[in-house]
Design a protein around this nucleic acid. Structure first.
Lengths: 334, 334
DNA sequence: GGTACTAATCGAAGCGCTTCGATTAGTCGT
DNA sequence: ACGACTAATCGAAGCGCTTCGATTAGTACC
């Protein structure tokens, strides 16, 4: 193994000079920098990560905690993880993968042992049991999702309230006057990630502002439940001309149920989905949708962490604006 | 930060004794072990990962290189990654996530800097450009998939040859005499992972042995291509009573195309898929299939690496036997 | 020309751990 | 009772790096 003293000898300087060339923390003459760089290249030198971490108390590794719960859309998690890794590399950091299975203990372990410098936690619930641990951690962290109490934390996520508004406003703009929100399962509205409530709030608030009749309908994530709900909607709200679907697994079933009931999409009924883009794109009928911006959330999380590691103040809450993409499932109200 | 000397003082022993209690590399009296353990717990001591890595030249971290290419089934990658992380933890190791984007350079970097002790590389191609690097690496590695030249490497994967055989034999056992293999896109049969060829070989070999007419049909991974192929099959092989589909994205389209052509599945036509279990299970019609054993591959990869790190000899090639699960898409030949 | 800088470099200490003798007691066999 | 072990423990060296003065030389100012 080639070490810093080898490089130093080869370049005719002291080890500390090599270190300063690498870190740029002191000024070194251009000529010396050149020689040292050449030696490094020639010898194929790589600083020993452990030694560096020990001496500098920085490991240049981030921990990423990914969720395993069922009901999580796997491709989105993956997209997010890739984005985190890619961005971390731009800041000369690597990413350690932790699963939620290990829970609190895992984060504690890698943090207390100084294996990582900072932590990203995905899929944070409204009343997440990991919050006290994250608050007491002596390393910066970023949460994906908003707990009910964000005191002392840094959170980032899609702005679901604005998303609910955007969906309704798109439909209102097309002339729809009676719009339903097909939402998450009922229990999600009490606990969990909080995004369900926020979407509904935004949806209803915008409906109020635009004089649209908006109603919210929680729905289990099964095809059956979706068909049953559509049946009820058709019976009870004959004026309904559009729905927003915020429940990934049943996006397709809902559309199909309306079609099977003789409604043409988007001729008789417009549909806006809140779901990953590739799901909306590759549906039988490409759907107008607001995407989960996994790539951006991942990138921004890392950027926030880097700022925190540099000792900078960062906004405690980052809400990403929704982007609505028009596809083939929405049309002006007939 | 609490360090080993703190624990030593608290327990009334020397630091080296604490270290030996932790590593078990020398015998320590039961009483001392008890006291040291108690102090560790009481003080909340965690060895500093960097210091440990520096002193022991072991980081207890594995690198996992995941693929990003399109055409890779994301949930399988995820399942695999989770299995690697979970198993690694059982051996007191963590997992560093690398993307293929970084390529060779990434592996070199984390390996040469002693950030990781060993490497797992997913999605290895027949003529993978990373092979020379992996061979020259001074750390153990395990490849998921078989390159054409496995000299000096440790590889593991589903036994695709046996998989092709198993599919055909299942159908032969049900009395089918003319069976088609709907395979990967044509180009995959030349380069890439080699699994396509092996499956086809096994399929044809078994067909020969059982006196079955077996034919192989490469197919692009689009619904259109699938429909076109099914049209041709129906026209050119009227005797055909079963197909094996080894091309994830078009499993459903192929089934649908046969149904649309008036063939009942499995009444008139049996279908065996080679694809992830959850895809076969959750299809409209649950499909008889051979699964990609992602969990097992992940687990075994880590076990192989741990053995190599212990200096043990391991088999250069591990072929996992296929498991065929009967579901609703196969029936005796009418 | 002397003080006061800044730029460039070096040497040494120290980060927290593991590991290799060395040391001390105790056990056994004869 | 004495050499020959083994079990249990300690002390010190050293892993490869960063960082903090200290040092030297050169520049600027009045």
């Amino acid at each position: 193994m080639v070490k810093i003293t080898d490089v130093a000898r080869h370049a005719g300087v002291s080890p500390s000079t090599v270190s300063y060339v690498l870190s740029g923390k002191r000024s070194i003459s251009a000529e010396t920098v050149r020689r040292v760089r050449a030696s490094i290249r020639e010898l194929g030198y790589r600083p020993h990560a452990g030694a560096r971490a020990l001496a500098s108390s920085r490991s240049n590794v981030l921990a990423l905690v990914i969720p395993l719960r069922t009901g999580i859309h796997v491709p989105v998690v993956m997209q997010f993880a890739v984005s985190v890794v890619t961005t971390a590399r731009r800041y000369d950091h690597d990413v350690l993968l932790l699963t939620q299975e290990e829970g609190e203990e895992g984060v504690r372990r890698v943090s207390d042992s100084a294996l990582v410098d900072a932590v990203i936690v995905m899929d944070v619930q409204l009343h997440d049991e990991r919050l006290p641990m994250l608050r007491s951690l002596d390393r910066p962290s970023v949460l994906i999702g908003f707990p009910s109490d964000t005191e002392g934390l840094t959170c980032i996520d899609l702005d679901f309230r604005a998303t609910g508004e955007a969906c309704l406003e798109h439909l209102a703009g097309l002339g729809h006057r009676v719009v339903g929100l097909v939402g998450s399962p009922p229990e999600v509205y009490e606990r969990e990630t909080g995004y369900a409530q926020r979407t509904a709030e935004g949806f209803l608030a915008a409906a109020g502002r635009h004089g649209v009749t908006g109603t919210v309908h929680p729905c289990e994530a099964t095809g059956e439940a979706a068909r049953a709900l559509v049946g009820r909607l058709l019976a009870e709200q004959p004026e309904l001309t559009a729905v927003v679907v915020h429940n990934e697994p049943i996006v397709a079933p809902v559309v199909k149920a309306f079609q099977d009931a003789g409604r043409r999409v988007p001729g008789d009924l417009s549909v806006v989905a809140i779901c990953p883009d590739e799901l909306a794109e590759h549906a039988e009928l490409p759907l107008t949708s607001v995407a989960i911006p996994a790539e951006e959330v991942g990138r921004r999380s890392v950027e926030l962490l880097m700022a925190k590691l540099d000792g900078a103040e960062v906004p405690p809450a980052t809400l990403l604006p929704p982007r609505l993409t028009e596809r083939a499932s929405t049309a002006p109200a007939g």
